[in-house]
C-alpha cells in the first residue's frame, strides 16, 4: 500500500507556486525523509498531506487512497507542525485530555507513562516547558493517537543533540512497535542517513529526487580519474555533478546497478546520501560553488514513480 500518493500536485499562493507538478508514491511502513532548502516546498507538501491546505492543482491521497483531509485521513494521520504547536496556557495533562476527546482512539496510559519517563510534569502550563519538552509533548500526543502515518515538519531544528536523539529514538520505536509510516522533513541530510528508507528531495518548488534510499545509493557512484579523459567518460554516462581539478576529476554518475564496468584507470566509490542530495540540489540550482566545482550538465531527475531508476538486478546495496 502506498501511504502517500500525489499526482501532479501543486499549490499556488497569489502569483507564485510554492509547489508544482509533484507526483509521488511513498510506500507504507517506511520512513520517508523530505529534504531540501528552505522555501523548496517541503512544508507545503506536508500541509496538504495533513489536510491543512487544499491543492491548487492535482491530488494527494493518504493511507491507500483516502483524500487528504477527509475524516478517514484525519483519523489515521497525525501531524506535528514546525515549532510543535501546543496551547501555551494548557497544561500537559490538559493537552492529553483534549487530544483524547478529539480522536477516536487515544492511548492515555502510554501517553502518561511516556511523559513521566521524559520528566515532563503534567500540571505545568505547556508554554513554560522548554523547546525540547514541547516537541516531545507534541510527539507524545501524536503517537498516543496510534496513527498509521505520522508527519513531522522539521521536528529536530530547534532541539539540542540529546533532545534530537531522544526524539528520533521515540519515532523509531513507534515504527518498530506499530509499523507506523513516517514522513519527516529536515534541511539537514546527514542526521537522516541512518533512519531514512525513502528519500524525497525538493528544490525551488519542484521534486528533484524520489526513491528508496537503497535503490538511490545503489545506482549512484563516484568515479575518480584523470581530467584528460573526463569528457570522454562523461559523455558515455549520466553525470549528476562534476568536480574538476587540474589533473584529477570526480564524476558523480547515475548507473543502472553496482556492476557497471568502471572505465580503466578510474576508481569507483560508493556515494553517501548527503553527497547524493547535495549534488542533485546543486545541479537543480545551476550553482557554481567554490573554485574547484563546476556545475554539472543538466540532469534534473524528475520522478515518474516510486523509484528513481529500476535497477536491472536487485543487488545488495550499501546502507
Amino acid at each position: 500500500m502506498n501511504v502517500i500518493e500525489t499526482s501532479g500536485l501543486g499549490k499556488r499562493y497569489g502569483k507564485s507556486w510554492a509547489l508544482q507538478d509533484c507526483t509521488l508514491a511513498v510506500p507504507a511502513g517506511q520512513l520517508a525523509a523530505l529534504v531540501g532548502p528552505n522555501g523548496a516546498g517541503k512544508s507545503t507538501l506536508m500541509n496538504m498531506t495533513a489536510g491543512l491546505s487544499v491543492p491548487t492543482s492535482g491530488t494527494v491521497t493518504v493511507l491507500g487512497g483516502h483524500r487528504a483531509g477527509s475524516p478517514a485521513a484525519l483519523n489515521g494521520v497525525a501531524f506535528v507542525a514546525q515549532d510543535a504547536p501546543v496551547y501555551k496556557n494548557l497544561s500537559a495533562g490538559d493537552m492529553l485530555h483534549l487530544t483524547r476527546n478529539l480522536n477516536q482512539g487515544f492511548d492515555t496510559p502510554f501517553a502518561q507513562a511516556r511523559l513521566a519517563e521524559l520528566g515532563i510534569p503534567l500540571k505545568k502550563k505547556a508554554g513554560k516547558l522548554s523547546g525540547g519538552q514541547q516537541s516531545q509533548l507534541a510527539l507524545t500526543l501524536a503517537l498516543a493517537r496510534r496513527p498509521r502515518l505520522l508527519i513531522l515538519d522539521e521536528p529536530l531544528a530547534a532541539l539540542d543533540p540529546i533532545a534530537r536523539q531522544d526524539f528520533l529514538a521515540a519515532v523509531m520505536t513507534a515504527m518498530a512497535d506499530d509499523g507506523v509510516s513516517i514522513l519527516l522533513s529536515s534541511h539537514q541530510v546527514a542526521e537522516l542517513e541512518r533512519v531514512a528508507d525513502y528519500l524525497i528531495v525538493f528544490s525551488r518548488a519542484h521534486l528533484q529526487v524520489a526513491g528508496e534510499v537503497d535503490d538511490l545509493l545503489g545506482c549512484h557512484r563516484l568515479l575518480t580519474g584523470p581530467t584528460a579523459e573526463a569528457d570522454t567518460v562523461a559523455s558515455q554516462l549520466t553525470v549528476v555533478q562534476t568536480r574538476r581539478g587540474g589533473a584529477q576529476t570526480h564524476l558523480l554518475v547515475r548507473t543502472t546497478g553496482t556492476d557497471d564496468p568502471v572505465p580503466p584507470g578510474w576508481e569507483s566509490h560508493p556515494v553517501s546520501l548527503e553527497e547524493l542530495v547535495m549534488a542533485h540540489l546543486r545541479a537543480s540550482n545551476g550553482l557554481s560553488g567554490p573554485s574547484l566545482v563546476q556545475p554539472a550538465g543538466p540532469s534534473l531527475v524528475q520522478s515518474a514513480g516510486p523509484s528513481l531508476v529500476h535497477p536491472a538486478e536487485q543487488t545488495e546495496v550499501n546502507r
Binding site: A169, T173, A176, D197
Partner: peptide
Amino acid sequence: KVRDVVAALTINPNTVLK
C-alpha cells in the same frame, strides 16, 4: 528485540529487520 535495538541506536527498524 527490534524495538530495543532501535531505541538504543536510533536506527530504522527496517535496517534491523534486514
